[in-house]
Design a protein around this nucleic acid. Structure first.
Lengths: 153, 153
DNA sequence: GTATTTGCAAAAGCTTTGCTGCAAC
DNA sequence: GTTGCAGCAAAGCTTTTGCAAATAC
């Protein structure tokens, strides 16, 4: 029984959001660039307001509404995923850059830590849903809430 | 490729919530009884306000706050699960009576239908998380968003 | 020069909470 | 008779929106 590899968000972000937006003909404003850079640099899951704080370190004038508008755009383009993380911190949403490899989130009710875990099983499950239910999966979200290894000790 | 068995919520509810609350020494008021009966009778996933409408058919004086307080209680006791259903209808939450068999939800972005699907794979995945990550799962939520069989045609 | 986007502030949507009087046991 | 619960209304929190001024191309 080995430690899981909880794939830090930062390591997994191969996608260059700014480049991807340009490729799709989307105007890349100063504000948007700041939001993209911040979300891409983040090493943990951020809610809109935390992200805003990071963005303002780059460009102090950016408004929270702009952060939300940019996130909405990225969601619609499928470049970021929105997470609930078991409502560990109220109704905030959290964001992460989309990855080709779907992964699941483990939320510890004791310490609030979020782990990520990637497994073939998740893909198999998705394939099963597609073939058995005739359902075309566009996006999936799997979250477990419970007690992490550290808190269990 | 056969049709899935999307297990209607009503059919799967073997748990008697009122009895369960009494067993745990919780006071069973008239209002609570109305909420429990309504949620247990529902044949689809309800948000708080829809549930409230059903409750008022039984007891017109029950307040929405009481519905929320009762739901909060049931959640904490693990008797109902709270769902987001891919935010298909904004940020509402939806509720269902907990079942021993975990199942996943398929939300169609076209028609808004919610299907349920139960499979061994989900249990296996949970077992894998517990053994590989050392994470004790208390609750899990798996939702896929996409296009259902009917809309795909 | 024109179309888009931004900042600001206000509104919206869902959920929670404080308090007083009422109900359960 | 106590203890806890319900109703009411107000507040809370996150997210969205309308609009005038600013910006990108």
């Amino acid at each position: 029984m080995s430690e899981p590899s909880p794939l830090a968000p930062a390591l997994a972000q191969r996608l260059d959001l700014a480049q991807e937006m340009k490729r799709r003909g989307v105007r890349l404003t100063r504000q948007r660039a700041a939001v993209l850079a911040a979300i891409q640099q983040a090493t943990r899951h951020l809610d809109a307001e935390s992200l805003w704080r990071l963005v303002r370190a780059r460009d102090a004038t950016v408004n929270l509404a702009t952060v939300y508008r940019t996130l909405g755009m990225l969601k619609k383009m499928g470049l970021v995923d929105e997470l609930d993380l078991m409502h560990l911190e109220g109704e905030k949403h959290f964001y992460e850059v989309s990855r080709s490899q779907s992964h699941l989130h483990l939320a510890c009710f004791e310490c609030g830590k979020i782990e990520e875990y990637q497994t073939e099983q998740f893909l198999k499950l998705q394939a099963e849903v597609e073939s058995v239910c005739g359902f075309t999966v566009k996006t999936g979200r799997l979250e477990f809430g419970g007690v992490c290894r550290t808190c269990r000790k």
